[in-house]
Each structure stands twice: as structure tokens, then as C-alpha cells.
Design a protein around this nucleic acid. Structure first.
Lengths: 128, 128
DNA sequence: CGCCCGGTACGAGATCCATCAAACTACGAG
DNA sequence: CTCGTAGTTTGATGGATCTCGTACCGGGCG
């Protein structure tokens, strides 16, 4: 009967539990939108600490949790840090075109947020 | 120099003042999502009272205001009632594909909300 | 004119949300 | 084992947000 609430267990909603309202709400915050945008522009997973958000650690934790619990991102521990990546497949399957249109909108309307991701430009719209 | 604050004056954000976060936030509420979906499925403007929302009149007013102030809908008085319609052109121009993908997602994941709109099916995805 | 109907304004209460500081946990390196 | 790094938890605070009830207004109808 161990499963005693291991603090390193991360709960993610299954695909069918992801709700549109939740995703839209998660994306309606500038900070979170920035995280999603950066994540989309990176070919690899990124640790939480990679993002240089203008808030404290606890606030950061909060935002990442909102993103995870709404089904927008997937998180997993790797050593001492936590890796994040977009749940692209799930989102594209559930809400086709939604993520892409949001990402394009962010790219268009934000002057490319300070703090470059690494190399890949914002995020090519992917297949249409 | 006041125009004496005419209560029938409705303020709408100009196109360039519409913000992505605001739109996403406005759409992240089930009630408002339902309104937008119904509006999108109607070829004509609809009065506020056309919607049979499970809330009181004042709450209804509140939600319509959120939609208007975020730039999602346009409102205008016509006689004793207020007509609503989507700001499709503005939204499509600012955030291409966003509204369509949201509407498709609503159509897919809601069992066609009770209280039919009139005739037109949910909203054909329009040009891709 | 007087009334109703569609909608607004104004509080007020409850809940949620973003934010922080401070104390804590877990892992890896010395 | 000790320390530092990465992130969590808890509690508090201030600000939105959602909801309501009640009072109000403006236009149309009888």
C-alpha cells in the first residue's frame, strides 16, 4: 500500500479530460503564454529554471502547475530539475489548429520576448 | 464637455487594442463560449434576450460586457433590445484561425447545446 | 399616460487568482 | 555528511471575477 503520496508524482489529465475552457484559461495569462511560446520554439524539453520569469519561484511553480493541470504541458522530473514539454499531439488532436493559431498570434503580436530560446525561430506553423 | 454620459453609448476596443490574452480569457468561460458559439451559428445579429442563459439578467449583462470589452463581440442598441454579433473580421485579421479552431472545438466537444439556434449548423470552418 | 419588457447600475458576498515570503523537500556534488 | 541547487508547500494579501438581488432607465404598446 505504498503509494503514500510521493511528492515526485505528477498528475496529468488524460487526453479525454482536457477541457477547452481550461486550456483557454491557462493560455490567457501573459506569463504562461510566454512559457508555451518558448516551449513551442524549442526542439527539446526545457527545465523550469530555463525560463527567466519576472516572478518568484513559488509563483513560477503555480503557473507551471496551471499549465500542467489544464493539459497544456507535460512535466517530469529529471534528476533535480523538472522538464517541461508541450502536449502537442493531445492538443492538436482535441482542438485542431488551436495551438498553432495561438502561437502564430503570439509571434505576431509580441516583439519576440527577451531571452532567446536557443536557436529555432518562434515556431513554424507546422503542417496545414 | 460631457455628452452627459449617455447610457446608450457602448464602448468597443478598436482593432489594435484587442489583446490575445483578453480574448482567450473571455473565451475561457462556458457561458460566454456558448454565446459565441451560438452567435457564430447565426447568420444574423441576436439580442441578449435570445440566449436562455442559466443566470440572472445582471450576470448576463456582465458576461456580454466582458465579451464586448475584450473585443470578441460588437453590441448596438436596436429599439428596446441590444443586438450582438461576432467581430469576425477583426478577430480573423488579428488572430488568423483562432476563432475557427475554437468554434470547431466547441462543436466537437459539446453535445450541441440545448436550445437550438434556428437552423444553421454549428459553424462551417470557413476558408482554410 | 401608464405599464411592461429588455437591459443597466450598484452594492454585496463568495470564490478564485496572481503574487510574495519563508520554511521545507529531494537530489546531486564534494 | 554537508552543502547548494531546483522546486514545492503553506499562508497571507490584494485584486479580479462570478453571482445575486434590488433599484433604476428608456423605448414601445395599449
Amino acid at each position: 500500500m505504498r503509494t503514500t503520496t510521493n511528492p515526485r508524482d505528477l498528475t496529468h489529465p488524460s487526453r479525454e479530460d482536457i477541457r477547452l475552457e481550461g486550456v483557454l484559461h491557462a493560455l490567457s495569462d501573459p506569463l504562461r503564454l510566454r512559457v508555451v511560446h518558448t516551449l513551442a520554439g524549442s526542439p527539446e524539453q526545457l527545465s523550469c529554471s530555463h525560463f527567466d520569469l519576472p516572478v518568484t519561484k513559488s509563483t513560477s511553480t503555480h503557473h507551471f502547475r496551471v499549465l500542467r493541470e489544464s493539459g497544456v504541458i507535460h512535466q517530469a522530473y529529471r534528476g533535480t530539475s523538472k522538464m517541461n514539454d508541450l502536449r502537442r499531439d493531445d492538443l492538436d488532436d482535441l482542438f485542431p489548429g488551436l495551438l498553432d493559431s495561438v502561437l502564430v498570434a503570439v509571434s505576431r503580436h509580441s516583439p519576440t520576448p527577451p531571452g532567446r530560446t536557443g536557436g529555432a525561430p518562434p515556431a513554424p506553423p507546422a503542417v496545414y
